[in-house]
Amino acid sequence: MGQPLKIGIVGTGAISGQYLSTFDRLEAVELTAVADLDTDRAKAVAEAHGVRALGVDELIADPDVDLVLNLTIPAAHAEVALKAIANGKHVYGEKPLANTPAEALPVLEAARAAGVRVGCAPDTVLGTGIQTARKAVDDGLIGTPVAATATMLTPGHERWHPNPDFYYAPGGGPLLDMGPYYVTALVTLLGPVASVVGAAARTRDTRVIGSGPRAGERVPVTIDTHVTGVLRHESGALSTLVMSFDAVATRASNIEVHGHSGSLIVPDPNGFDGEVRVHPLGGEWAVLEPSAGYRDAGRGYGLADLAATPAGEPFRASGDLAYHVLETMTALLDAAARGTEVTVESTCDRPAPVPLQDAPQAA
């Protein structure tokens, strides 16, 4: 009790830097080791942060690691998580939980059998942006929620990413890449999803890399790059989702929530803070001051929230939530392919709200 959770990172690519910078100000967690298939990169990160560089299997078995932070590519998420669980470790991973629900479910089942926890990004919903919007919904500022919109339009990641191949292969695409931020926010605001309908399209068979040593090279596109659909929440609210790598820009809000007596503009769910605006019936748009969430949060706060939650109690960035979000997204792709409404078989508890506070402390 009161001791930080000892963390070992598997995967020291670009996203690890955001976690590492956050860990410096989180007392609930302590980094003890890192590992990567690129051993030189792991050594450089280890030296910069004063920890050990280990082999992947060595780190997973290390007695000085309580939890494995899984920052590998999505195709390896389930494999690494299962190895960690088999060694008695808790697991927290980058989104998505796995490439498919069929890969993700054994992770949750193994964790329950082993008595360890599984958490998963995104934890952006724990910041003051989404949490202030959630409090406005819970406090009845817009009345009963009836609808929401969530929009993410970009011309494609190949313009800036030097190795964008995986964005355009199965397991990639705008929905599975960026959708976890938006769908997790919608579940946080409105509760779990019961069913979905959708449509999807692909405008190009190749993409041209725009930066790095492979600039000018074409990569094949084997998945749909514009996905739209409607999520029917268990509460009865309907969320319209548009995720695209085919458009240029939009002036629409990232997320809006509409109720009988008001509307909310919700900030970008890929960030932790941002401005929340409310328009009451008969009134005008007004900015809400931050009233809930972790202040000045960054990637890793979900992990610290896990560490701050006593054993046996639900934590917010849970594997069950991530599984429901993953199944919702894959059901939407299935609905688009079949041209029919698809039931989302799983459900989850709406995560507990975060009172306005600073970083979580060790349990």
Rank of each mutant, 00 (worst) to 15 (best):
G88Q: 03
C120Y: 02
D66R: 08
D36Y: 00
V34M: 04
K95A: 08
P122S: 12
P101A: 12
A84G: 13
D62C: 12
K95T: 06
A61L: 09
N70Q: 02
N70L: 01
I85E: 00
V125D: 04
V45G: 01
D38C: 01
T124R: 06
E58Y: 07
A86H: 14
L20V: 06
R117I: 07
G13R: 03
Q131N: 04
T124D: 05
Y19L: 05
R52A: 15
A76C: 07
A61F: 06
N87H: 15
E47A: 15
P101E: 11
A76N: 08
E47V: 15
A61Y: 06
L82F: 09
V29A: 04
G55F: 00
E27K: 15
P74I: 11
E109Q: 15
A42S: 11
K43P: 01
V65E: 07
T12S: 04
P122G: 12
A75N: 02
T72F: 01
G88T: 06
A44M: 14
L69E: 05
P96Y: 03
E27P: 07
V118R: 05
R25L: 03
A75S: 13
D38Q: 07
S16Q: 05
G55C: 02
V68D: 03
H77D: 02
A44D: 14
A121H: 11
D66T: 12
I85C: 05
K43Q: 15
P122K: 10
V125G: 05
L105C: 06
P74G: 07
N87R: 13
A121I: 05
V34W: 01
A46D: 04
P106C: 10
G55I: 01
D123F: 07
V125Y: 06
K83T: 05
L108K: 09
A78Y: 01
V51Q: 12
N87D: 09
P106T: 12
A46C: 12
L105H: 10
L20W: 02
V80N: 00
A102S: 14
H77C: 07
D62E: 13
G88E: 03
G11R: 01
L26M: 11
G50K: 13
A53R: 04
A81L: 06
E27R: 15
F23E: 00
A84W: 02
A33S: 11
A48W: 09
A98V: 12
V29F: 02
T39P: 00
A46L: 09
Y92V: 14
I73T: 08
L97C: 11
F23Y: 07
A35F: 00
I73L: 08
V107L: 07
N99T: 15
G119N: 04
G17A: 08
D36M: 01
R52T: 14
V116H: 07
I9Y: 01
R52L: 14
R25A: 09
A46Q: 06
C120H: 04
V51S: 13
Q131Y: 03
L69D: 04
L31S: 03
C120K: 04
T39D: 06
I73H: 02
V118W: 03
C120A: 13
L97H: 05
A14H: 14
D57Q: 13
T128I: 09
T124N: 13
K43N: 14
D24C: 10
T12K: 00
R112S: 14
D123V: 10
L97S: 08
E103K: 11
D24W: 05
L59D: 07
V45D: 01
R41N: 05
Q18G: 10
E94Q: 13
E79S: 13
A48V: 12
